[in-house]
């Protein structure tokens, strides 16, 4: 055995003792996220045309989209934030936020079996096109 009294970690330990700790008191003290970090998927229902490309290409099958119902849903706990959906979206309805998504807990699960972290949108059908609709119908509105 080498000299048992030569402990190379001692200087480092003593230096640490008098310098500032490297950790922070998470979660009360947070580090700012870097720009371009992949946090969580943000969806804008207004611009979506329900082409379903995102749902089809999602490797985690986290997105559900229906053209008929004009509905869009994401399971944030299944989402792997790979960014494929953001890339394939033609309407730019999807974007990646640098901030991580909310923390979801099992307590959010509702008795109807909805998973925590599931976010849903429904877009009402557009109003009838006024240029082709009968004038009287528009007037009564």
């Amino acid at each position: 055995m080498a000299n048992p009294f030569r402990l190379p970690m001692v200087p480092r330990a003593l230096r640490n003792l008098v310098s500032r700790p490297a950790t922070r008191l998470y979660p009360t003290e947070l580090r700012p996220r870097f720009a371009g970090a992949r946090g969580a998927i943000v969806f804008d229902v207004e611009s979506c045309n329900f082409c379903m490309l995102c749902a089809r290409r999602c490797p985690a099958a986290a997105i559900e989209c229906s053209r008929e119902d004009r509905s869009w849903a994401i399971d944030q706990l299944t989402c792997i934030a790979c960014g494929v959906c953001v890339e394939v979206c033609n309407k730019k309805s999807l974007s990646m936020s640098a901030e991580p998504g909310r923390v979801h807990t099992r307590a959010e699960a509702t008795p109807d079996g909805r998973r925590p972290g599931r976010e849903e949108w429904l877009k009402p059908a557009p109003p009838p096109d006024l240029t082709t609709a009968p004038v009287s119908a528009a007037a009564t509105d």
């Binding site: 490297a22 996220r33 870097f34 371009g36 970090a37 992949r38 792997i80 934030a81 790979c82 960014g83 990646m96």
Partner: peptide, 18 residues
């Protein structure tokens, strides 16, 4: 941790870089 910060800066992810 410093390396992970480099990854997050350049790829957007600390562990899974995609």
């Amino acid at each position: 941790e410093q390396i992970l910060d480099i990854f997050e800066k350049t790829t957007g992810g600390r562990i899974i870089h995609s």
